[in-house]
Amino acid sequence: MVTDVGHAQRVIIGTRDEESSGGVLTEVGLVTWRSLVKLTRTPVLLFFSLFMPLIWLVMFSQTFGTVFSSATSGGLPGGPAATPLPYDYVAVLLPGITVMTAIQSASQSGFGMVADLESGFMDKFFVAPIRRSSVLAGKLLADGLRMAAQAGIILGIAAILTLFGWRIPFATGVMGAVLIMLLAAAFGVAAAAFGVAFSGLSNTVALRTKNTESTMMVSFSLTFPLLFLSTAMLPKALLPAWVQSFSTVNPVSYMADAARALILTGFDWAAIGNAFVAIAAFGIVLNGLAIMAFRAQGK
């Protein structure tokens, strides 16, 4: 098979030529492509990661909406106007729901990777002449796109609800919505990186599964405290004093404040900047913890 040997040489030449940054982008893109294709072919997963947050959105805004309006009938405590607020509780709650969705998707991320490691599929990536960082970047990029899309869907549904008389100002329109999607994706990716690092770094199946399960558990039991001890569910002025103090060290608050400003008032660049700094810090601390745990447990 002379032609085959010819192929082999062409392949090798191709490899040599493409050793530029374009090569890295291709690598990352392929890994992302594969994750996204997989995701679109398992729509059940997508549906359920949206289902819970949407239920929340509707239930909470219905149940607590009236309480919120009566509590704020004279305006927000410490706020300027003594007039009723021009928006419903659902507008306040919306950022919290996007964070919640991102956390839920992030906790699934580690599981996907463990499944790939166990099936032997990950070996295909690892034995190919690509950097392991490309594999990680590709996976997290796919996670980020997914979380952004989910935030977009939630905002879209909220926009539809305004047609039925729900008062959500959407002060910054589509641009603001895109920024919220970005924030949610960044927050989710920081959390997903933790899940991936924590479950993927171990080299035995049992440990990986154990770590993934504990990531799931931890994220599940931390979701509620993180949401409620932040400004994600209520504006800071309405929170009890001790929750107010805690909320200042809770990254969720910064994310929620920026998103809420985008919905209620306008582009608050200071809040948006703070949110990205908080997310970066959150990501660094979490992933540092994962690496420390990995070192302690040995290879």
Partner: peptide
Amino acid sequence: WLIGRLYHMPNSL
């Protein structure tokens, strides 16, 4: 196809 592309082979090849 995915594997081939991971080796940076040109699409047509």
